[in-house]
Design a protein around this nucleic acid. Structure first.
Lengths: 354, 354
DNA sequence: CTGTTAGCGCATTCAG
DNA sequence: CTGAATGCGCTAACAG
């Protein structure tokens, strides 16, 4: 069904139909005829051809590392909100945490085309840089800092440091206890390098140290967190706190701790008394995370974590993007968003919620 | 950068460039010149125009109700796997559980266009039916039964019944205890009607009944599960099991139970002894779900739930779709996938993992 | 207000 | 093998 067929059926020119569709000048009578024909035929104009002509698709593409993530869904929620308010629709592409796929999907979006691209970034490789420099559609990066595009990111270092300090203080209650850290690849400047460096800085500020044998690198998956935590528990018997770079990893670590305790004999005493006790085989190892995952909080009562304004970063990112798409705003913007430390109920008192 | 500019720079015709790009006849020498120019300019052909010509985008659109869901991500994982094996890419659109948006995004995909659409369905409205009948691109529906398109769905009724029987048997240990059910809208034939009806049938088979005051309807969100469960706990003091239509809702219910117990005085006894005890204000209310959420299992140790072959349904759905896209397969297919009941460790013995 | 016309960037005839 | 010409479906001048 093409516009010309509609025009013929309605006995008008194709231009008239086009104008009808786009709110131009059409006399009342013809308007009726056209309307009727469109009704009957169920005609829908081809975005395809329209976009070829107008260079405008009212679509923005969002590239995400994975689908099944609370933090990412909070970002896309913010993005989607702004987009729909301003008459755009959102298409998503998931890369399954493969950085090269990020570039591939951005290219697909670029010449599909969409009006703008939002990248929820994991790492900025040479490929990324090349694309960002050459892209013919505007891009904004969320979650990573880059000077090659407008970006909005979070204070991961500050968050890490706050967590490091909190852990350092908690550690003071366990004279011989140590903290461990399960991070993610440092190629991820935000969730990898910044959080870990901040964490170490925070620990140091409290007079603690994080040695190499107390560190692990995990993928962004619960299973990977499980493995890393289990390995730590087996190798080091003085760990009393395991801090993780994400709440998802923390969930895996919690599972590992449950299993570890199951294997290494049942608990002999309730934990409720002992804030001064530390682990030698069976005491309560505590876990911290980043991201303020609500699901985790609901079923566990909560662990110490950091709340990032993910939805806000989505909103700001989308606004930035549309500003350059529509108003051709040319001034580069880098936006850094703060964080909020989230304490766990009863945690600093020594007990983690059951 | 258009194909014509490349042609000029290479000193050939646009047709030659087009052939070069699509593997047609080009002499070795020209091939080199074209290759060089494309390298230098970083030219990328417009899918846009190409698709307008060829009617083929090597793209399929997947419409999902929400992003942040383990079950949905398992489906899209399966879909993405098949697609990428066969040279297609996957674009996602999330509807935030609004059925009308499902149709809207299918229309966007239809005339964007993509080669095929996969709908992870929540409900089939009149709008949906209209679209499925008239769509010019093939659609397969995953998760719901429909005769208007190829579909692959799960045995939700059977799963519900299995759960109903299990709950019924567990209930026998609590002479005066009752089960409650938190469902979702019955407009969702699969997760709503089928699971609930199956559940009731299963209960009945064990000689139990599910009265109206023991039912609630929730949205697909943890918070909604929390509210529903809290309401049940407050209104009925003989509930010992709350069965939920999804694991996400179950997580909310678990949180509600934690909170409820916190408010209504601390536990006086350990739960470990008492399989015969039932709740009067403070005993262990148990929760069941559907979907086999791994995150939930990790942090809680697991609740009774049902495993659906979500990834498989994604794989099968994508294969079905590509068969009609590529081979123009015309025989309608309806595929029903079974389920697997997942017991909770130590549950039937009366104790839920802490 | 209306119809005619000229492309948008590309793939594909069809003559060379 | 190659290039010129045609049109995919639509919108935006433009001349009525």
């Amino acid at each position: 069904m093409t516009i010309r067929e509609i025009a013929q059926l309605a006995g008008v020119s194709n231009a008239a139909v086009s104008r009808y569709l786009n709110g131009g000048y059409v006399s009342g009578e013809k308007k009726e005829r056209i309307k009727k024909v469109i009704q009957e035929t169920g005609y829908q104009p081809s975005m395809q051809a329209r976009t070829l002509r107008t260079k405008k698709a009212c679509l923005v593409g969002v590239v995400v590392p994975k689908i099944n993530s609370e933090s990412i869904s909070r970002v896309t929620e913010g993005v989607g909100q702004v987009l729909s308010e301003r008459g755009y629709h959102m298409l998503l592409a998931s890369t399954d945490n493969q950085a090269d796929k990020e570039v591939m999907y951005m290219k697909i979006f670029e010449n599909y085309p969409v009006d703008g691209i939002i990248l929820i970034g994991t790492m900025i490789t040479a490929q990324h840089r090349k694309f960002l420099k050459e892209s013919r559609v505007p891009v904004v990066v969320i979650g990573q800092y880059t000077r090659l595009a407008n970006c909005v990111y979070h204070d991961d270092y500050g968050a890490g440091k706050a967590m490091g300090r909190a852990v350092g203080r908690a550690l003071a209650l366990y004279p011989e206890g140590r903290a461990a850290y399960i991070g993610v690849t440092r190629e991820d400047k935000a969730a990898g390098a910044a959080r870990e460096d901040g964490f170490c800085a925070g620990l140091k500020a409290e007079g603690q140290e994080l040695e190499e044998e107390y560190r692990r690198v995990s993928r962004f998956r619960m299973e990977a967190g499980y493995e890393a935590a289990m390995d730590l528990l087996k190798k080091k018997d003085d760990i009393v706190i395991i801090s993780c770079a994400t709440d998802t990893i923390a969930a895996g670590a919690m599972e590992a701790i449950l299993d570890y305790r199951k294997e290494n004999g049942p608990e002999k005493e309730s934990d409720t008394d002992g804030s001064k006790r530390y682990r030698f085989g069976n005491s309560p190892v505590k876990v911290t995370g980043f991201g303020d995952n609500q699901f985790l909080k609901a079923v566990t009562g909560g662990i110490p974590t950091v709340h990032f304004a993910y939805k806000t970063s989505g909103i700001k990112g989308a606004e930035l993007l549309l500003d350059v798409v529509e108003k051709e705003e040319r001034i580069p913007v880098e936006m850094k968003l703060g964080f909020q430390f989230v304490e766990a109920p009863g945690w600093s008192g020594g007990q983690q919620a059951e």
